[in-house]
Design a protein around this nucleic acid. Structure first.
Lengths: 218, 218
DNA sequence: TTCATATAAGAACACTTGTTCATTAATGTA
DNA sequence: TACATTAATGAACAAGTGTTCTTATATGAA
C-alpha cells in the first residue's frame, strides 16, 4: 500500500463535487446568510439536484460546520504567521504594519472575504463560530501582540504602559475598518478612503507609543 | 375638536398590542435573527394567533421596517444629543468621555442592546439598515466629532492632525468593544474587563492627542 | 344599553423547507 | 471488458413558512 498523503492526488469525482459544494455554499452563505440559503439554492448553483448533496454531507448543518472549521486557518486567524521568531518584536513598527496589511488583504481575497462575512453574519447565532472567533482570533492575536509589545517596552522601543490595552487599541480599528470595507463593497461603493485608514492607523498608533526623542532629553 | 397630540393618551387595545408586537419581535429578531423568527413565534410569545398580527402589520417585513426606523432615534445614533451647543468642544476630554459613556450604556439598556444586535445581524442582508447605519451612525457621528476635534485644534487644546482620521480612530474601538460585550453577554461571560476598556480608551486617546506641556517648552 | 368598529380566532391556502429512498447512471479498478 | 463502488436523479415525505379570509368576540362612543 502506497502512502499518497504527499503525492499529487487526482481528485475523484466525489472530492471535486464536495469541494464545489463547499465553495458555492460559502459564497451563498456569505451573500444571503445561512438561514436564507436553501439546499436547493446550493444545488441549483452547481447544476445538480439537492438530493445529490446528501451523498457528500449528511445535512445542511454539516456543510456549515465544515466551513466553520476553515475559519481556524483563515487569514484573520493567522495574522502572525510570518512572525514565529521570538525576537520578531525587534521589527517594531514594521511588525504592526505587516499585521495591518494582512488584515487589509482580507478584502482582496474573495475566499477570506467570504469567510469574514460568514463569521460576521452567523457569530450572533452560532456558538461554534463565537468560540472560534474568541479563541483563534481575539484571544490568540491579542495575546501574541501584547507579548510583543511587552518586549518592545523592555527594550525601550516604546513607552511603558498596559500591553493588553495597547493590543486591544491596535486591533479594534483594524477590525472596524475591515467591517466598514465589507459593508461598502456590498453596495459597490468606493473603499479607497477606508483602505487608506489601515496604514494611517499604524502611523498614528506607532507615533503614540514610540519613545519620543524629546523625552530622552530629560 | 381637541388637539390631543400632547395630551396623556390612554392607549387603545390596538395600540397596546401593536407595541407589544414590536417589543416581542425586536427581542426575538435580536436573539434568533429575522429570518429564523416566524410570525408564529412572535404570536406565540404574545399568546395570540398569528393571524391577529395582520390586523396591525400587513406583513412580517413591515414589522422589521418599523423596528429599523427606530434605529434612527436609538442611542447609537444620538451620541451627541447632550452636546448641541457649538462650543461643546471646549469640554475637551469630558466630551469624549461622555460619548464613550453613552456607548457603554447601550449594553445596560435592553432595548438599545437589542437594537444593536438587530443592526449587527441584519446589516449584511438589509440595505435599509446599511443606509441608516452609514448615514445616522457612521457619517453623522464621525463628522460631528471631527468638527469638534477641529475646533479643539484651533484652540490649541489638542495637537494638529487630520480630524477625520482622529474621529475614526476614536470611534472604532468603541464600536469594537461594544460588539465584544454583546458577544460575551450571549454566552453569559464576564464583561467587566471589556467594559473597563471604554474609559481606558478615552484616557489613552486623550493622552495621545492633547497638547503636551513639554512641547510648549520649545 | 346599543351598535358600528376594531381586534381576535379558526381554518385553510399555496409554497418552501430539509431530508429520505429506491432507482439509474457514471466511475475507475481488476 | 466486466463489475463493484460511488454519485446523481426523480419523486416523495412531513413539517414549517407567510399570508388570506370568514367568522366570532370584545371595545368604547352614542
Amino acid at each position: 500500500m502506497v502512502d499518497k498523503t504527499n503525492a499529487v492526488k487526482p481528485l475523484s469525482r466525489g472530492d471535486r463535487t464536495k469541494n464545489a459544494i463547499l465553495d458555492v455554499s460559502l459564497k451563498l452563505f456569505a451573500v444571503n446568510g445561512y438561514k436564507a440559503t436553501s439546499v436547493r439554492d446550493i444545488a441549483g448553483e452547481l447544476g445538480i439536484k439537492q438530493s445529490a448533496l446528501y451523498n457528500h454531507f449528511k445535512s445542511k448543518d454539516e456543510i456549515l460546520s465544515a466551513l466553520i472549521s476553515e475559519l481556524t486557518s483563515s487569514a484573520i486567524a493567522e495574522l502572525f504567521s510570518n512572525f514565529s521568531a521570538p525576537d520578531a518584536y525587534k521589527q517594531g513598527k514594521m511588525l504592526l504594519l505587516s499585521v495591518a496589511t494582512t488584515f487589509k488583504l482580507i478584502s482582496f481575497d474573495s475566499k477570506n472575504e467570504a469567510l469574514f462575512k460568514l463569521l460576521m453574519q452567523e457569530i450572533f447565532n452560532n456558538i461554534n463560530i463565537r468560540e472560534i472567533y474568541n479563541e483563534y482570533f481575539y484571544q490568540e492575536n491579542v495575546k501574541k501582540l501584547s507579548s510583543y509589545l511587552f518586549s518592545m517596552m523592555q527594550d525601550e522601543m516604546i513607552k511603558s504602559s498596559d500591553p493588553i490595552l495597547l493590543s486591544n487599541e491596535f486591533f479594534a480599528p483594524l477590525f472596524f475598518y475591515q467591517m466598514q470595507i465589507t459593508l461598502l463593497k456590498i453596495d459597490k461603493k468606493s473603499t479607497s478612503f477606508m483602505v487608506s485608514l489601515f496604514e494611517k492607523h499604524v502611523e498614528f498608533f506607532w507615533d503614540t507609543i514610540k519613545i519620543d526623542k524629546k523625552d530622552t532629553l530629560f
